[in-house]
């Protein structure tokens, strides 16, 4: 059984026993530095300080905007 999470408009499958349970776990799985990403779950902004407590459910729409340096 797989768990499906919708990330930036694309479905991503995770084995059910290894599916990330929080936003922080998802970012670690995707190897994204928390300090460089703005995250939304179902259109609502999740502040970085809440990434570890933001629980993920299948069917949610997750938006991750990553920033690279330069300006």
């Amino acid at each position: 059984m797989n768990t499906t999470l919708r990330i930036n408009g694309n479905d991503k499958q995770f084995p059910q026993d290894r599916a990330p349970k929080t936003l922080a776990e998802l970012l670690a799985e995707l190897k994204i530095d928390q300090a460089t990403v703005v995250a939304e779950i179902d259109g609502r902004i999740v502040e970085r300080k809440d990434f570890a407590s933001a629980a993920l459910q299948p069917g949610q729409s997750i938006e991750l905007v990553r920033f690279v340096g330069g300006g």
Binding site: T36, I45, F67
Partner: peptide, 10 residues
């Protein structure tokens, strides 16, 4: 800096 961009947008 990327972390500053993140901070402001958030």
């Amino acid at each position: 800096r990327s972390d500053q961009k993140q901070m402001l947008v958030e």
